[in-house]
Amino acid sequence: MNPTEAYPAEAVALQDRSYGWFPGQPGGPRVVQHTTVNIPLEPQNDHLIWSLCNFVYGNIFCLGLAALISSVKARDRKVFGDLAGARHHASSARILNIVATVLTTLSVFITIIVLIVGNVQASHYSRYYYN
């Protein structure tokens, strides 16, 4: 059974009373212009500050220098508008910075542990032979 047959009074379509333009505005309907704004993606971070810190404080195996060079190249590529090249150099700088930071941190911890163990051994040695 068709719903319009059961209720014939409701089968009548409502009339569209929209005007096509804003009421009270002279001239009737107008052409609407659309403006498209292209927002570029967030620019790639070049990790320059991190590279400078690794270069100054943790230049182990010259990884800080390599990271600094990659960061400067990434910044230059970004200025010239080559976002793919900037992204490539920035990812290289990021990897080099991570490796340099991990190696520097490990070397600091190993140095601290060796110094502590050396002091403990020296204190045991002095107690054993001088008491």
Rank of each mutant, 00 (worst) to 15 (best):
A93K: 02
S92A: 08
C53P: 06
A84L: 02
C53A: 11
T36I: 13
V31D: 00
A100K: 06
R30G: 05
V108N: 04
V12K: 11
N2Y: 13
F55A: 11
Q121T: 09
I116L: 12
I98M: 00
Y7I: 05
V120H: 01
A6E: 12
L106W: 03
P29V: 05
N45M: 09
A122N: 13
N2R: 15
W21N: 03
L52V: 12
V31N: 07
L68V: 01
T4F: 10
G20S: 12
G118L: 03
Y19R: 08
V102T: 07
V32R: 06
D82H: 08
P8T: 01
T36N: 06
V99D: 01
Q121P: 00
I113L: 15
G85C: 03
V79C: 09
E5R: 03
T4R: 11
Y128C: 04
V102Y: 06
S71P: 14
L96G: 00
G118N: 08
A11W: 01
V114R: 09
Y128V: 13
N119Q: 04
I69E: 14
P23M: 02
I112G: 05
Y7N: 08
A90P: 08
G81L: 10
E5V: 08
S123E: 06
D16M: 07
P26L: 04
F109M: 12
L68G: 03
I110Q: 08
S70M: 15
E10M: 12
A86T: 08
Y7C: 03
N131T: 04
E5L: 11
W21A: 02
S126W: 02
L14Q: 01
V72E: 11
N2P: 12
L48P: 06
H89K: 01
N2E: 14
W21R: 03
D82Y: 08
A93M: 05
L103R: 09
L14C: 03
I39A: 12
P43Q: 01
H89E: 12
T4S: 09
G27S: 01
D82F: 05
P40A: 12
S71D: 13
R87M: 06
W50L: 13
L14E: 02
S91E: 09
H34S: 11
Y57M: 03
G85P: 05
A122M: 13
L52M: 14
S18R: 14
A6C: 04
V102K: 01
L68D: 04
V102M: 07
V56K: 14
A86K: 01
V102W: 02
L48V: 14
Q44W: 00
I110E: 01
V31Q: 06
L65Q: 11
C53L: 13
L41C: 00
E42I: 07
E10N: 10
D46F: 07
R127V: 02
G64D: 03
H89L: 00
A84K: 03
I113Q: 14
V117P: 01
K78A: 15
I69V: 15
T104N: 01
V79Q: 13
L103W: 04
G28H: 09
I39F: 12
C53W: 07
E42A: 07
N38D: 11
I112N: 02
G28R: 08
Y125L: 10
I116E: 06
